[in-house]
Design a protein around this nucleic acid. Structure first.
Lengths: 400, 400
DNA sequence: ATATTTAGTCCACAACATAGACTAATTCGG
DNA sequence: CCGAATTAGTCTATGTTGTGGACTAAATAT
């Protein structure tokens, strides 16, 4: 658990503190950095020196922070040295994103493919090919990719990187963590959780919210005080199986009346009674809605009500500051957001002064892959000392 | 947010580490302490010396830890110097507990009284009298009470110590935090949260569980990795208003079909159709059950089912390791525990290998007051350096 | 009685942050 | 245009803390 703190860890902590402050302020001089951190100018200078040497920050031009006196030299996070790769396997696409330490997206590769039709190992092979080509391109521009993150639609054992059960893909007990070897450390995580983190770091940027990921299944990622809440075993956020009506329609989870039966992608398509092409399902629905189709509108009403009911349980239990609707709910937001907010507001009327606002995600299907990459970058910012050690002795590429 | 780390904070951290290890192991020699913390014997000796001087630990007799060689001197947490006071205002009683740093309960005062019949300030006055007498007794035995915790049945603003709305007491906007002045720092917190912490520190002692507090209202406290989960605004855990049936009976929260309408104390009493005496309501119900009364048994079945439905939503959302039933559910456990576990198990069948076990609380109505005291002791263990400063200059009794 | 083993202390040293003097680079005012 | 004022950043001496190994203390084994 908690361990002894020695001089080197004190230094590592302060190094991380400085890097975090530089990032959160965009750019800072050493003098203001000393002010905001509470460290002395001497210490800040030494720490910034180390960060410069490691290539994690760069000096921008001189600026006059105050009107009089010598101008300071601003320091900002360097996007030219360190990067991470984010991957996503979803039902109908594979995607790869390379993001540098300054959170700029350097490379986007997306491949539309129905992954339910292939064997897991073949899908992993496809993704590996995409990822390796992205890695090669990134390394070619001088970036050093320090780690990879992978988003999958279903609960994952984070330690082993094994997918227990991804019902929408039809996968069971697939050891992606070990099968997808890219030569860099890999972390596998639930898609909804990573999409929430993506929203945190690349989207709206609030520190407290519940992200709702509507796909074939419905997941949620809870961010509290800037950190993901995973629960005891890492299975938290299964919003799709929260009860809407205890004796409602049978769900494939074994229970009855789960949210997924009312507001999952299939429920929409069933309601619209036009399941011609699954891949363009959402586009078709939006088209119907834009033409004012009453059946589709009614389906939205019903799904929005169910989502509101399930979310009111969630709000009572975990008290999020805001609700962010993502996945298929993002394009449907104009027709569904109002009902959701009204249902929540109605059910929470007496419990709290104001119900959490319901907002729409700013990132489309990119959220999870970006969150996956961002999570790797976050480990770098949390412990820059560990990285610079690894960067200095390049002989050893570092174990898993 | 995160702040700079200096030498004094390094020391404070290691001091806390040593104290924590001493507590979690019961008693330890300096040598084994050096092993488990990773610090050197020299450093451990210095830190232990400071803790001894502050009176937070004491030396027990010498023991031969290993067969050969000089025997070590074991050190354990001292229960004779530092203590905390835990208070609870509930609907039908006031209670006070004094607990020393070694977590021994030194004093118990409970007063049965229907607090709905008095004005809030009168109730606070009653509690203050009880608490001051307990404080005097404790100080008389040489204990130094370093802080107080207060449990109230309803959501609280932790910062200000103000109760927004305690519907079961009929209180609104009562500033208990400032009104109840005991001369020591006071922290006010929701009863369910503190009962969960009480269970953590004085009861079963698991590090991950969801504690369900069934009283007139139904609350829950979620403990994850030994820490309380409060949500963004501190209102998490309102299990009583999780949806069981979205169009069910009207709840006083404004919604319909909340758990409280099915499994709250009033729902039980209504079902049994014998609301003769509220104070002994639960005892009467247990008596009926022990005589095999079928109406009461049916009420348990229904409440247990509803609790299982709401808990299955909670498990999907927050993934607790274990469910602990407390409050009125503790005496009812023999008749209700089975249905709850079955309902949960049935609804989670396909989602995870095993559903969280449903257990019964080991502490009766004492849980919340003990948790309140324990929370104060935890701040001492988390930062013993801050306390010893305050203990050394006794002129200044400390602000707030 | 002596060797061995383990506990705990002592002392020289290393790592880190601090405080304040010092140098560098700019603006302001005459 | 030059000196005073002001702010940025570096340098040096110092203080606090943990480390490592030598040392003393107290037990058991032979």
């Amino acid at each position: 658990m908690a361990q002894a703190v020695r001089h080197d860890e004190m230094r590592a902590h302060n190094l991380a503190l400085v890097l975090r402050e530089v990032r959160s302020h965009g750019s800072l001089t050493r003098a203001t950095l000393a002010e905001v951190t509470g460290l002395t100018k001497t210490t800040v200078s030494k720490l910034v020196g180390d960060l410069l040497e490691a290539g994690l920050v760069v000096e921008a031009g001189a600026v006059r922070a105050r009107e009089r006196g010598r101008p300071g030299v601003e320091v900002r996070v360097s996007g030219d040295r360190v990067a991470a790769i984010g991957l996503e396997i979803n039902v109908d696409y594979l995607s790869v994103r390379v993001v540098d330490l300054s959170r700029r997206v350097r490379l986007r590769l997306t491949q539309a493919v129905d992954n339910r039709l292939s064997k897991p190992m073949d899908v992993i092979g496809d993704l590996r090919r995409l990822a390796l080509s992205a890695l090669a391109q990134a390394e070619g521009t001088g970036l050093r990719v320090v780690g990879a993150g992978l988003a999958v639609p279903g609960p994952v054992d984070i330690e082993s990187g094994e997918i227990h059960n991804a019902p929408n893909l039809g996968w069971r007990n697939v050891p992606v963590g070990t099968a997808l070897d890219l030569g860099v450390p890999l972390r596998v995580e639930n898609e909804a959780n990573l999409a929430a983190l993506g929203e945190l770091w690349f989207g709206a940027g609030r520190a407290d919210f519940l992200y709702v990921s509507g796909e074939i299944g419905i997941g949620a990622g809870l961010v509290v005080n800037g950190a993901l809440f995973r629960g005891a075993r890492g299975f938290a956020g299964e919003l799709g199986h929260v009860v809407v009506t205890p004796e409602g329609p049978q769900c494939r989870c074994g229970a009855r009346g789960c949210l997924e039966q009312y507001a999952g992608q299939d429920a929409f398509l069933d309601a619209v009674a036009d399941r011609s092409s699954f891949a363009h399902g959402i586009d078709a629905i939006v088209a119907h809605l834009e033409h004012g189709d009453p059946t589709t509108k009614a389906a939205c009403e019903k799904a929005g009500w169910a989502l509101g009911v399930a979310l009111s349980s969630a709000i009572n239990l975990v008290d999020p500051h805001t609700i962010v609707l993502g996945g298929i709910y993002a394009p449907l937001f104009p027709w569904i957001g109002g009902v959701v907010a009204e249902t929540i507001g109605g059910r929470l009327a007496q419990m709290r002064a104001t119900a959490p606002p319901v907002e729409v995600s700013r990132l489309g299907s990119e959220a999870a892959a970006l969150g996956a990459a961002g999570q790797v970058l976050e480990t770098v910012v949390a412990d820059p000392a560990a990285l610079s050690e690894r960067l200095t002795d390049r002989r050893d590429p570092g174990p898993r």
